[in-house]
Amino acid sequence: MLEINCPYCGKRAQKEFTYAGDAGAERPNLETGTNQDWFEFVYLRNNPRGLHDELWHHSAGCRRLIKVRRDVVTHEIIDTGAPSDSLSTGAS
């Protein structure tokens, strides 16, 4: 079971969270987004085999969405933050 560091609550067991998907896709502007923009946002994924930015909902905790940078091969978590935060690359 993963252990996820919620930026608001601290380290918590994965059971408290609900996976909320890829954080990489940018939502098109509601007013100006085109069909193509929405197609790419809704359906297409980079699906990298390596570091993946993703959202988790602390659904049994603070109920905030958090951003997690995780290696999807090793499940190692590099960094976590608010959805708008820039996360560390783990290079250091």
């Binding site: 909320a20 954080a23 959202l55 909902h57 659904s59 109920r63 969405l65 959805p83 708008s84």
Partner: peptide
């Protein structure tokens, strides 16, 4: 509820 919270927290903060 989850989806509305997502929209507010992630897309329309």
């Amino acid at each position: 509820m989850n989806r509305l919270e997502y929209l507010l927290d992630v897309d329309w903060p």
